[in-house]
Write a protein that binds this DNA or RNA. Sequence first.
DNA 1: CGGGCATTTGAGCGTTATCAATAGGTGTGG
DNA 2: CCACACCTATTGATAACGCTCAAATGCCCG
Lengths: 248, 248
Amino acid sequence: MTSTSPPVLPQDCDGCPIRHRAVCARCEAEELERLDGIKYYRSFQAGQTVVWSGDRMDFVGSVVSGIATLTQTMEDGRRQMVGLLLPSDFVGRPGRSAAAYDVVATSDLVMCCFRKKPFEELLRETPAVSQRLLEMTLDELDAAREWMLVLGRKTAREKIASLLLIIGRRNATLKLVAGSGPMVFDLPLTREAMADYLGLTLETVSRQISALKREGIIHLEGKRRVTVPDFDGLQAIAGDDSDGGMLV
Amino acid sequence: MTSTSPPVLPQDCDGCPIRHRAVCARCEAEELERLDGIKYYRSFQAGQTVVWSGDRMDFVGSVVSGIATLTQTMEDGRRQMVGLLLPSDFVGRPGRSAAAYDVVATSDLVMCCFRKKPFEELLRETPAVSQRLLEMTLDELDAAREWMLVLGRKTAREKIASLLLIIGRRNATLKLVAGSGPMVFDLPLTREAMADYLGLTLETVSRQISALKREGIIHLEGKRRVTVPDFDGLQAIAGDDSDGGMLV
DNA sequence: CGGGCATTTGAGCGTTATCAATAGGTGTGG
DNA sequence: CCACACCTATTGATAACGCTCAAATGCCCG
């Protein structure tokens, strides 16, 4: 966790890896230029906190590369992750001055930040941006509601399987991996972070992962690299219906 | 639950109880007229299902009066409520043809529905609507994330207290009740519905409510009418920090 | 090699689920 | 009008799942 060189920062939107999925996805050259005028890149090392809950936050932005988490903490220290932010995901809330959650860089992270005030103006004047943001927010809401089912009703085993599926699926989408063959990906989270996401203790997470490994449902190389030989099998364990909510 | 007369339907927006809080809140007369052209009212009796998850849904709309719930169900019957819809709340997702959740009328319910196709057009052309919808969706997302903390990390006792607070607070907002004195409200949910919301069994809900009653934290008249003599005390039990997230 | 951290594994316990019986409330029909 | 069915809610007994506390292992890096 002591990488000393800051991640390389991109300069413009042309080669931006999230150009067509982020909040700017629908922008024309002209609108992009306007966004360009209020944006700046920031990078964080793995483990760094981007903002603390309650702190003043005068930017919003997109994750360009790396992974960040949103977490809530109770007074006595109990923590619940409420968002897992991958490249293209939006951070911050227009119209609010303070952060509602802790935002933490889980890996080295690059963000494309927009100064909040001018971004809010732009939101009022640029339908391409506000409509894209609405769409993304609706997606986030659906994801949050799916997660409520996981937290409220699934067993520890099902929770782990659900998390593996979510990470695997999002990884496949981002990397545009072909659909067949065993699924392989890196867990971007420590056991503790997984526990915070799943509403479990890290011991239970560890035990359940060991059990899945023992049963051959997953294979591990090291602690982080996961292979899923039977995707449908894992879906069955997660309690997902096999067609997995194909909604348009 | 066999009320035979359908609820009275409102006719226009002038006297509409949710005129200034729903998705139409920011509309001028002209925009309101356009909405008027694509809207129709529907009423449901308590217990009726508005739409089934997976069904085609060719409208979106607002709750005008009454209460509805959004629920997800797993194949084996486990259920999780993922939304509690009070007057002014928005139902449905623009850009999606099938319902993602079961929507059920928990009390007698009146909805102001918009035909989906024209509403989507209107969304593209009417910033007053799309921006209001964005704002409401962001609020919903925050509520969902707060609920994730409840589901993932709170004890049964804390969950019950949290639910009572949420219902009490929303009730106070809707009714514009003065802030002092004991809080009184009706539980709009059965024990089973509360269990579905909280990720508990109905037996545990019943036991925890009995415990709070026994300890004098709440009083009950009948099964549904609740009095909370000490609001701060209940907040403490819910595990909320006393200032309760005063974010702007 | 040793310190620090993430992870695994074990033992015992507690909260909540499960199964089951009872109580209360409301509408219906004899 | 009372008996009964039906539904919601309460309460009890027992079991199980996941938490807590504890120790050991592996791993990275100085």
